[in-house]
């Protein structure tokens, strides 16, 4: 694998706030500790394929509905049970929901996948990053599912299932035709690299 970092131009996150650092750590260590170079970044050559920008809508709808349900609960506490601290909770829920919605486009942009020679590489997350590599030969089945909002937007989710329950690679927000094409391509790749359990 060539040692070139390209393709995914991840915006450098704001420098992390200084935290208490061990006194036993030497000074250069300290400088490095606060260096953004600590970011996880795989040196992969290929281009990261992105999910559809429309997927942001699906995420936002989900977040807003969840926020509304929580708000309803807090409001019920406030008005029916007359709990005095309920308005604070309500305000907190609204603020958190707004912040999550604001970051939603950024989170969706962080989802990416690559079809490499022998495996599928998947990434997601900004704060909590996660990279998964699944060899094609390990795929047991591929699921294509569509939720109501996603169907309205013409999107589908694609899920790769291996014998390990924890693999859990779910590529959301693919245009429906793309999802079907990707599924067929992956099945073809898996067939040609069939392996046992």
């Amino acid at each position: 694998m060539p040692d070139t970092t390209e393709g995914f131009a991840a915006p450098v996150p704001p420098a992390p706030a200084p935290v208490a650092v061990s006194v036993s750590e030497p000074a250069p260590e300290l400088a490095q500790t606060l260096d953004p170079a600590g970011r996880l970044e795989l040196p992969v050559a290929g281009e990261w394929k992105r999910v559809s920008p429309r997927y942001v809508v699906v995420e936002i709808v989900g977040t807003v509905i969840f926020g509304l349900v929580l708000c309803a609960g807090a409001t019920a506490l406030w008005l029916l049970a007359e709990v005095s601290w309920a308005p604070i909770v309500l305000a907190l829920i609204v603020v958190v929901t707004l912040v999550v919605v604001l970051f939603e486009p950024r989170r969706v942009r962080s989802i990416g996948y690559q079809l490499r020679q022998d495996d599928l590489l998947f990434r997601r997350g900004i704060m909590f990053q996660r990279f998964v590599s699944v060899p094609y030969g390990r795929m047991q089945l591929i699921d294509v599912t569509r939720g109501p909002v996603a169907r309205w937007l013409g999107l589908a989710d694609l899920k790769f299932v291996t014998a390990a329950a924890s693999s859990g690679v779910l590529v959301p927000g693919l245009a429906f035709d793309d999802a079907e094409a990707l599924r067929d391509r992956l099945i073809e790749l898996a067939e040609s690299r069939r392996a046992g359990l």
Partner: peptide, 18 residues
Amino acid sequence: RLQSIAIEQGPIQRMLRL
């Protein structure tokens, strides 16, 4: 026998380059 591999990093681990 390995099925897949994942590597993860949270904010604290990022600060510590882990």
